[in-house]
């Protein structure tokens, strides 16, 4: 999936195969399936990813982010979706 195909109208959640480890800068995300490691470099993004599954859509989740940072966070989520760290809700 490319960033362009990331549908903010859909609900996403953290992949059950991914472990998030809190770090001073944000968190490390490790995918036990594809063995990818991602650095989430701001705590606000970590919080957003953790709470993603509680929102009906990515758009709803992004509404909790200050408007001027929304595009940046949307791109970050698209990147995480691309590496299967987050996946569409069932």
């Amino acid at each position: 999936m490319s960033a362009a195909e990331f549908d903010v109208g859909r609900g996403y959640r953290l992949n059950p195969q991914v472990a998030l480890r809190p770090e001073p800068f944000g968190a490390l995300a490790y995918h036990f399936g594809n063995r990818k490691l991602s650095f989430l470099k701001v705590p606000e993004l970590v919080e957003l990813v953790r709470e993603l599954g509680e929102h009906a859509s990515v758009e709803d989740a992004l509404a909790t982010v200050p408007e001027q940072r929304r595009s940046q966070f949307r791109n970050a989520l698209a990147s995480l979706a691309n590496s299967d760290m987050i996946r569409p809700q069932d």
Partner: peptide
């Protein structure tokens, strides 16, 4: 304005 990347991927 260069956008800071919030996610960096690498094992």
């Amino acid at each position: 304005v260069e956008e800071e990347l919030l996610v960096e991927e690498v094992i």
